[in-house]
Design a protein around this nucleic acid. Sequence first.
RNA 1: GCCCCCAUAGUCUAGCGGCCCAGGACGUCACCCUUUCAAGGUGAAGAUCGCGGGUUCGAAUCCCGCUGGGGGUACCA
Length: 512
Amino acid sequence: MSAPASSRPVRVRFAPSPTGLLHVGGGRTALFNWLLAHGQAKRMGQEGAFLLRIEDTDQSRLVAGAEQGIFDILHWFGIDWDEGADKGGPHAPYRQSERLPMYRDAAERLIADGKAYRCFCTPERLAQVREQQQARKEPPGYDRHCRDLPAGTVAANLAAGMPHVIRFRMPREGETVVTDLLRGDMVFQNVNMEDLVLLKSDGFPTYHLANVVDDHDMEISHILRGEEWIPTAPVHLRLYAAFGWDAPALAHMPLILAPGGGKLSKRHGSTAMEEFRSQGYLPEALMNYLALLGWSLDGEREIFSREDLLDLFTLERVNPSPGTFDYAKLKWFNQYYINHIISLDDLTMRVLPFLANAGMIDAAAIGNPDHPDVARVRPAVALLKDRLETLADAPEHLGCFLVDQLPPYDTATLIPKKGTAEDTLAALQAVARVLPEVDLDDEAAAEARFRALADELGVKAGNLFMPIRVAVTGRTQSPGLFETLRVIGTARCGERVQQAILALGENGMAAG
RNA sequence: GCCCCCAUAGUCUAGCGGCCCAGGACGUCACCCUUUCAAGGUGAAGAUCGCGGGUUCGAAUCCCGCUGGGGGUACCA
């Protein structure tokens, strides 16, 4: 950290609004905050704390259940917090709607010091002002109509019970320098800053007031937030100064852009953490991908576990330029974790909910390694894990190993490209005869026997194997034939070959 | 319009004045492996380091301008 290596504890916070599902951009901001406090700071021998604060100051945008959804998805993601809305802490409460008196007091204090003022302008007047400014091609903004209202007028309005907001009295001259840990100094002319609303007419604070009051009260040392906050950062700094407080260090995280440009939205695909979970992405793969979208160790290493990130993450190596979300690369990470990183037992357990959802196994098996269905699933997962891109692919790939009855055959797929219905039928009938004498558990012996059968029939091995594959799995693509037969078992293989013979016989007649 | 941020291949990035006529990864293509599809292996194409000026013996790296992209401009966060 560019801040002096003092012993001051590193206290950071992630402060989402419970207005819907957590966005991947928010997930990454949470991750970087958590890595700074629990990783980098602790490695430097400092105390590090990560807090989760709920910013529910806009009553109109609240979504029922959204707050719990945020807790759940962060836990799933692999992030834990030291203090927060659900678990309390030394600066409780951590939900802004429960801290209203603090904001009111802070705003009143600013008024008493002449640093803020009451504004009685109605929304209608503000809209009108904005309209006129637009018509005259002037920059839009509050015209500071109430900035210097006579004390008598204010008192009268107050006595009349007129609704009002409290606005910050932003200095009209000079400049404000915002030092960003990633970008260095950014200079803003105070004339360009507005007299932002601090306290709304409903008594709730705006983000600007609440975040400053809370970050100070909660002893936040570093603010890591999205780049969209850069424009108001100078006002926040002026607010700290008005209160006589030291401001935390600031670092604005780069934006995550959509593939076509612009901000990532539904139009381009999934944007919520929750969607990636339900689509079968592993939290460790998503974390790895998101960490690398903005941060890098050396440009060479790509695979980082949660623990690796705690050991290696440094804020300095976050790249300030915006990045484009790449669904294909995320998928690659997911596939790689499924196939090469997590264990077979682990993968088996994770695939269960998706199989249960497809009705292929007993839902009671979820989370229960001793359930008999787990033993049925595991060997199939062992064969198929190299072609699962997401856990949600499991039903499609594992289905033929788990169900008793295959869906009806597409008979065209049973017949090899260069084969005929008659030859295929004869081949499968030969297979049906041979199958009972073959020990499928001995893959090498089974393969030798079926290769010999191909010779006897006078066909290439591939032209015998493909009909068997389709008969037994219902699919033209599968793992190696003999491991597939072994796992599906002699009984079911026999039944399916018979079914295929029947299907082929009927359709062969029809076609002939 | 005004304010601000950013700028290395389609994408994520390494690079912080000479080691770079630019390295890694995804994606793409080819070949190998092979009973199919994957996985895996090998290799290839792809960047005049956005453009133009400087500074310097020397610039992807420093400075300025331009252009492009993005963000902000609410009693939303």
